[in-house]
Lab assay of single mutants.
Amino acid sequence: DIIVVALYDYEAIHHEDLSFQKGDQMVVLEESGEWWKARSLATRKEGYIPSNYVARVDS
């Protein structure tokens, strides 16, 4: 799995977006363009995230 960590807070604009806080970790489910589908490890919610707001966690 690709794990990313939030670099900034993000408040969902559309209902399919995923809100998150700086430091939150998410599993990337699908990478396509600038918006990635991800699942929050904390809340288990899924939605689209702006890929420029996150960084990959080296395992």
Rank of each mutant, 00 (worst) to 15 (best):
I49G: 00
A6Y: 01
Q21F: 11
N52T: 12
S40T: 07
D17N: 11
G47H: 01
V27E: 08
I3V: 10
E16D: 15
S19L: 02
K22W: 04
R44W: 13
Y53V: 04
V5Y: 10
F20N: 00
L41H: 04
S59N: 13
R39L: 11
G47Y: 02
D9L: 03
F20L: 03
A38V: 15
D24I: 02
N52M: 10
K37C: 11
D24S: 05
Y8L: 09
V28K: 02
E34W: 13
W36M: 13
H14S: 13
S51M: 11
S51I: 08
Q21N: 12
R44A: 14
L41C: 13
D24T: 05
G33H: 05
I13R: 14
K22N: 04
Y10E: 00
E46Q: 09
D1V: 14
E34A: 13
S40L: 15
A12Q: 05
G47W: 03
D17I: 08
Q21E: 08
S51C: 11
Q21C: 14
S19C: 07
S51V: 07
K37F: 15
V54E: 02
G33I: 04
E34H: 14
S59Y: 12
F20G: 01
S59V: 13
I2A: 09
D58F: 11
H15W: 11
G33T: 05
R56F: 12
S19Y: 04
S51L: 06
G23K: 02
G33K: 04
D1E: 14
K22C: 09
E34D: 13
I3Q: 04
V57K: 08
Y48E: 02
E30Q: 10
Y48C: 13
M26H: 02
E31H: 14
L18R: 02
A38G: 04
R39G: 03
W35Y: 12
W36V: 08
Y53F: 12
E31I: 14
Y48D: 03
N52S: 15
A55F: 08
A38W: 02
Q25L: 15
S51R: 13
R44Y: 13
E31T: 14
A55I: 14
R39C: 10
N52R: 12
R56L: 11
V57G: 05
D17C: 14
E11F: 11
L29M: 08
T43I: 04
D9A: 08
V28F: 03
H15M: 12
V5Q: 06
A42D: 09
I13K: 13
G33R: 05
L18F: 06
V27W: 10
S32Q: 11
F20I: 03
A42T: 13
K45H: 09
D58I: 12
D24G: 02
Y53S: 09
K22I: 09
V54S: 00
Y53N: 03
I3M: 08
A6N: 00
E31G: 13
N52F: 10
R44T: 10
Q21S: 13
N52V: 09
S19W: 04
P50C: 10
E31R: 13
E16H: 15
E31A: 15
H14W: 10
E31S: 15
Q25A: 09
I49F: 05
I49Q: 01
S32Y: 14
Y10N: 02
M26S: 00
D24R: 01
H15N: 13
A12K: 06
G47K: 01
E16W: 15
V4R: 01
F20K: 00
A6K: 01
E31W: 15
V5S: 04
R56P: 09
W36F: 13
A12E: 03
Y10R: 06
I3A: 03
D1R: 12
K22G: 03
G47S: 01
G47A: 01
A6W: 01
I3H: 06
V5F: 08
E46P: 02
H15D: 15
E46T: 12
Y48K: 09
D1C: 15
V28E: 00
N52L: 09
D9T: 09
D1Q: 14
S19M: 04
V4I: 09
D24N: 04
S51A: 13
L7M: 09
R56Q: 08
S32A: 11
T43D: 08
E31C: 15
K45R: 11
E31N: 14
T43L: 04
L41G: 03
P50K: 07
V27G: 02
V4Q: 01
W35S: 07
I13L: 12
K37V: 09
W35R: 14
D9V: 04
V57W: 09
Y53K: 08
H15F: 12
E34S: 12
A38P: 01
W36S: 06
S40R: 06
W35C: 09
T43F: 03
V54W: 02
V57Q: 08
E31D: 15
K37S: 06
K45D: 08
Q25Y: 15
Y8S: 07
D24V: 03
P50F: 06
G47V: 05
D9N: 10
W36G: 01
F20V: 03
F20H: 01
V4H: 05
G47I: 01
S51N: 07
R56V: 12
L29E: 04
A55S: 10
K45L: 12
E11I: 14
S32V: 12
G33Y: 05
W35E: 03
D58N: 13
V57N: 07
A55L: 10
I49S: 00
D24F: 02
Y8R: 14
G33Q: 05
I2N: 11
Y10S: 02
L7W: 03
E30G: 08
R56G: 05
I13W: 08
D17Y: 15
D58W: 09
Y8I: 07
A38F: 01
E46I: 13
D24Y: 02
H15V: 14
Y48A: 04
S51T: 06
D24A: 05
K37R: 14
M26Q: 00
L18T: 04
Y10M: 03
H14M: 08
E16A: 11
G47D: 00
Q25E: 10
L18Q: 01
S40W: 02
L41R: 05
K22S: 07
Y53P: 00
E30R: 07
E46K: 04
S19K: 04
A55M: 14
L7Y: 03
V57F: 09
A12H: 02
S19F: 03
V54Q: 00
N52G: 12
V4S: 01
R56W: 08
T43Q: 05
H15C: 12
I49A: 01
